[in-house]
Amino acid sequence: MSTKSETGLDGVIAAARQAPERGLPPVHLWNPARSGEIDIVIRRDGRWFHEGAVIGREAMVRLFSTVLRKDPDGYWLVTPAEKLRITVEDAPFIAVRVDREGDALRFLTNVGDEVIAGPDHSIRVETDPYTGEPQPYLHVRRGLEARIARPVFYELVELAEERELREGLCLGVTSNGAWFPLGAAGSHLP
């Protein structure tokens, strides 16, 4: 066994592999002194690229997602030895599925995270200032979000109920005791 700590991409892979099954390493507790950048980009469509080439191995992307952290100064892949800044075009994950389970909405992300929307995992919707289209997001963990895929958002709209707010009639969904506004009633019609 080597006593030299691994760095760069090899170090990220080694740290992520230490996580038990789907458990997550405690990246929020790691504060390595060494930092740098790595040419990894998470595109808006959820695909991960390294040095311009798509990372085609789904298992590798899932592995990297377990050591991803968002700090005030950006997104980082973090190991006990170092942290490497990466580029994220929108949100690092995509919510690709939603299921109603009793009074909860369970989401599945493109990297295998299962998230139940609620007080700790909020749904928020921004509006694109140019197109007026809704841009929905789900909080996954520690500041990391998933953009809710368009078909999944349409499912949420189908599940939505109207509520009268100060701003007017609003559509929203309830999950795990929390209500999340999706937008003005009628604004999601084609």
Rank of each mutant, 00 (worst) to 15 (best):
D45T: 10
R47S: 06
W76G: 00
E58D: 03
G112T: 01
D39N: 13
R100K: 13
I38R: 00
L108P: 01
M60Y: 05
F93A: 01
L77G: 02
P72H: 11
P72I: 11
F180L: 09
Y137V: 06
D73L: 09
H139R: 08
S175Y: 09
I148W: 10
E158T: 10
E101G: 00
T7A: 08
D71G: 03
I40Y: 09
A59M: 12
T174Q: 07
E164I: 13
G112E: 03
A33L: 14
G102R: 07
D113G: 00
S65T: 03
E133P: 03
V61A: 13
R43M: 13
I42N: 01
F64K: 00
N110C: 05
E82C: 02
V78K: 00
I116W: 09
P20N: 12
H188M: 14
R163S: 13
E167R: 11
S187G: 06
G168W: 11
L156K: 10
L159E: 05
G74W: 15
A160G: 04
T109V: 10
G183F: 14
T131D: 07
D128E: 09
L144N: 04
V152Y: 05
M1N: 07
T109W: 10
A15W: 01
I148F: 12
A15Q: 00
V12M: 14
V152C: 04
S2W: 05
V54C: 08
V27D: 02
G74N: 12
F180N: 01
R141F: 10
Y137S: 14
E37N: 14
G177N: 07
R34A: 12
A95N: 01
L63R: 04
T7Y: 14
A178Y: 13
R85Q: 13
R97N: 07
P190C: 06
G36P: 05
R44Q: 08
P134H: 07
S65Q: 06
V98K: 02
L63D: 01
V140H: 02
Q18Y: 04
V12E: 01
E126V: 02
R142Q: 06
H121P: 04
P181Y: 13
L68T: 04
E101M: 09
K83M: 13
N31L: 11
D128N: 15
T131W: 14
V173D: 07
R47E: 08
R97Q: 11
E158F: 11
V41L: 15
R44I: 11
A160L: 10
R163H: 14
F93G: 00
S65K: 03
P190Y: 11
A81C: 04
T7K: 12
A185L: 13
I38F: 12
E145R: 03
I86N: 02
